[in-house]
């Protein structure tokens, strides 16, 4: 747990740009919320490695969202069921179903489709919100926090040393 929290604060206090961190969290939505061994995740990995996305944020976010997925899965399945059984969308799904490429993506799986849709819907909000939080933290909270006596005391404490060691 310490390890986890330590990494998180290290990330927030580091030099990485808030935009890269936010992008890492946003891409992590797909890896965490959708079934891991899916073809679309190969594309996500391609983007994450090819674009300057903060990998720390990405892997940290993936772990957090994978935990959250246990609670979100029932909702994802409901969304997938709803979409795949929607009569208005039937022709579209049927058309996609004729293609081997699309079926390789398992778009007709309720959990997979639902969780991908939720990830797509949350992608932009996650990007902006996490960017805002990281920026705000660094501008206001981090500076204010460093000025506090207690923070100076903490820096001298064993906990801080441990926290520092984790960041190395």
């Amino acid at each position: 747990m310490f390890n986890f929290v330590g990494k998180f604060f290290k990330l927030l206090n580091g030099d990485a740009s808030p935009g890269q961190i936010a992008l890492g969290f946003s891409f992590a939505l797909f890896i965490g919320l959708t079934p891991f061994f899916s073809l679309h995740n190969l594309i996500i990995f391609f983007f994450v490695f090819a674009i300057r996305v903060n990998l720390g944020a990405f892997f940290l976010g993936s772990a957090v969202f994978a935990l959250l997925a246990f609670g979100i899965d029932p909702l994802s399945i409901k969304v997938g069921e709803y979409l795949l059984n929607d009569p208005d969308l039937l022709s579209m799904w049927t058309e996609l179903y004729q293609s081997d490429v699309w079926r390789a993506f398992k778009f007709n799986h309720t959990l997979l489709l639902g969780s991908v849709v939720i990830s797509i819907l949350l992608f932009i909000p996650m990007l902006f919100i996490s960017r805002f939080i990281v920026s705000t933290y660094r501008v206001r909270i981090m500076k204010w926090f460093e000025k506090l006596k207690i923070s100076k005391m903490l820096k001298a404490s064993k906990f801080y040393k441990y926290y520092e060691r984790l960041g190395e």
């Binding site: 899965d73 029932p74 994802s76 399945i77 997938g80 069921e81 795949l84 059984n85 039937l90 799904w93 049927t94 179903y97 004729q98 293609s99 081997d100 079926r103 398992k106 007709n108 799986h109 309720t110 959990l111 997979l112 639902g114």
Partner: peptide, 16 residues
């Protein structure tokens, strides 16, 4: 197994 989701099949000229 509801929680694991399921595959929904559609009419196809290309069954698998």
């Amino acid at each position: 197994k509801r929680l694991e989701g399921r595959l929904v099949h559609f009419k196809s000229d290309n069954p698998l």
